[in-house]
Amino acid sequence: MPHTLTAVARHEAEVRKSRFLALAEPIDSPEAAQVFLDAYRDPQATHNCWAWRFGAQYRFHDDGEPGGTAGRPILQAIEAQGYDRVAVLVVRWFGGIKLGTGGLARAYGGAAAECLRLADRVELREECRVLCTCPYADMDRVQARLLAAGARIEQAAFDGEGVRWHLVLARAEAGALEALYTDQTRGQGAWRILEPGDGPGPAG
């Protein structure tokens, strides 16, 4: 089971007078990776090299270092430790001694790997989104039961019939939560698992 981080992590190292600062953060989208990189890169540093993985998507960047010596070793550190939905930035301040391609790969990959090794991690559960409806008379009780069972409400919309919720929950628990929902609404509430690409807004 893949893991992600619980918070931003950091690790510093010095390799032959060059200083390396590794920063890692959990991300909830590829766009969040770019926000993280923009926030933490240091324009005064010699290089800001990075990598991120989000599910099947990934990117890495050497920022002027020889090809394959920085971004890819950072990505390999992410993958080797079983991380997903994580971005890692390794900032380098050149100390005057060249490290060579092998030395660079070991320095960047090592800084990233140690940062991730020391970080607090949490198991990454596969999630799904559900569209469901609930009569007003049952709303407070059903909402309390769903939240207690680990679902979270992404969006709520109200009409003359009741509330329409978009829920996010662990895919492995979808069947049990649907049974709970059917019981709590006495069969009056609709429940539909949304497929990737379905919009987050209330269905018409």
Rank of each mutant, 00 (worst) to 15 (best):
A113V: 00
A77I: 00
Y83L: 14
E127Q: 14
E114D: 09
L104G: 04
V86M: 07
R106M: 07
L104A: 02
G95Y: 00
R117H: 12
A87C: 08
R145F: 02
T133C: 10
P66T: 08
V122W: 06
G103K: 10
C49P: 09
V88G: 11
G110V: 00
A119Y: 08
C134G: 01
W93L: 00
D62R: 05
A87R: 01
A105T: 03
W52H: 09
A119C: 07
V122M: 15
A80Q: 15
L104D: 03
V86H: 11
V130M: 06
V122A: 13
L89R: 11
A77C: 07
Y83E: 10
N48L: 10
C132F: 02
G110I: 03
L89N: 12
E79G: 03
V130W: 08
D63F: 09
T101K: 14
A51E: 13
G102I: 08
G95T: 07
G68A: 12
W52Q: 05
A87E: 04
V91F: 09
A77Q: 12
G109D: 05
L116P: 10
R59T: 07
E126P: 14
D120V: 03
F94T: 08
D62I: 00
A119M: 08
R72K: 15
R129T: 11
V88R: 15
E126Y: 02
V88P: 13
V122C: 13
G102L: 13
L99N: 01
T101P: 09
Q44E: 15
Y108N: 01
V88N: 14
G100V: 11
Q57E: 15
V130K: 08
M139H: 14
Y136C: 04
E127D: 13
A112P: 06
C128Y: 02
F54M: 02
G100Y: 03
C115N: 02
R85C: 01
N48A: 06
P135G: 02
L147N: 10
V86L: 00
R106F: 08
A56Y: 04
R92P: 03
D120F: 02
T101I: 05
D140A: 15
G68I: 11
P73Y: 10
E126T: 15
A51F: 05
R121M: 04
A107E: 04
V86Y: 10
Y83C: 01
L99H: 03
G67R: 15
A56L: 14
A112E: 05
C134S: 04
R85D: 05
Y58D: 12
G110M: 06
Y83A: 04
F94M: 01
R85W: 03
C128F: 01
V91H: 04
I78S: 05
L131A: 14
R92G: 07
F54S: 10
T69V: 05
D138W: 03
R141W: 10
R129N: 14
P73H: 10
R121H: 14
H47L: 07
R129E: 15
Q81E: 13
F60H: 15
P73C: 01
R106G: 00
F60G: 11
R92Y: 01
